[in-house]
Nucleic acid binder design. Structure first.
Lengths: 206, 206
DNA sequence: GTCTATAAGGGGATAGAC
DNA sequence: GTCTATCCCCTTATAGAC
């Protein structure tokens, strides 16, 4: 069962937490470069000087927020991928469901991480001990066993694409079609069952 | 047969074209907000004042580049989607092949468009007459005919996801795995045949 | 801890010489 | 058309009062 999210009352938050909450919002919406520390101070209902009092600089504050966001994004993937107790199908269902729940309430999360990492690769913190943990994961082994003729990374990338990309292209999709928020939400809910069905078919293809 | 790209010799380009070429590079790499007009001038090997002489402002220059980039991105999708003469399978093959060729030489293109549109939706120029042209397209009709029980947009989004998302997540993928440029290139080439096979299986699923 | 005022520098745009 | 020098606003960061 998921940890119950505490509702945040602005009045109850410490000044430090008010700043972080404002920074989360502004940084993810506008990106690092377009964000002014004034925007964050205003969003927090506080004075500009307090940002430097608590966090020393815009950059330090950003690093804290980015670290949080990356942990949030990968926390729905990494535990699933290395679970020895679940089937391949079970893992796919869990990943699809987890991501769609997470991104429905945090639609800006992936584009934020992807574009900031693109513009400054150094801010990407090490998510695991080494660079082969994905290739060494249980998930990859299970894919390889099922389809030795197919590169498991191709499958994993496609799975992530189907879960994450709709949220990444949401602003563009809304410019190109007449789907509204409710329609989009319904589509994403339907994906929770669609993705397992489709990926299963992919693994049986040809 | 594709139009042969003329190799650009810097010395042969007009000053205006030098600036645009530099702007293409710097804007797509760093994004609008993080780009300084001085970066563009330096990249072009020219003086800062010339940017304003030719383009009036950073914003005007950006709009020109963005328009070009959006046309480039959608020019591989729109003609295919409304072609009455090709099969569904033929369209999928064309879209996958076109995007992988385009993005192999322009890997930053999608993340550039997606993040700039996210940060300023107004810069998205109208790509077609109305907002239902996607839903009204031949492609969507063909999908609907094959699978009346499935929302064609779900399929289209997944297809685009499988073509485009690998390039969007490339910087992150390179941080998380040990694949190098050559490996990535090979994977994308393999996708040209993998995507048609996989999407065909999806349309037959369950 | 929180505020006001200001320092210090960056960055877009332009004036004016050539 | 192209350059140098400069203007001026905006932004980050800090000093110092309360």
């Amino acid at each position: 069962m998921a940890k119950k999210e505490k509702v945040k009352h602005v009045a109850d938050m410490s000044t430090e937490e008010k700043i972080k909450e404002a920074a989360r919002k502004v940084f993810t919406q506008k990106g690092y470069a377009a964000t002014r520390t004034r925007d964050i101070a205003e969003e927090a209902g506080l004075n500009l000087a307090l940002l430097n009092y608590y966090f020393r600089s815009k950059e330090k504050l950003f690093e804290i927020i980015m670290l949080e966001k990356m942990q949030k994004f990968f926390s729905v993937l990494l535990p699933v991928i290395n679970n020895a107790a679940t089937t391949l199908e079970g893992k796919v269902e869990a990943i699809a469901s987890n991501y769609i729940v997470l991104l429905t309430t945090n639609p800006d999360l992936p584009l934020f991480i992807l574009s900031e990492v693109r513009h400054n690769p150094e801010i990407f913190i090490k998510i695991a001990q080494n660079k082969t943990f994905l290739q060494d994961s249980f998930f990859v082994k299970q894919i390889h066993k099922k389809r030795p003729d197919c590169n498991p990374l191709q499958f994993l990338v496609s799975l992530l694409a189907m879960c994450v990309f709709p949220f990444v292209m949401k602003p563009v999709l809304q410019k190109m079609t007449d789907i509204n928020e409710a329609d989009f939400h319904k589509m994403m809910l339907a994906r929770k069952t669609l993705i397992p069905v489709w990926t299963k078919a992919m693994l049986k293809a040809k």
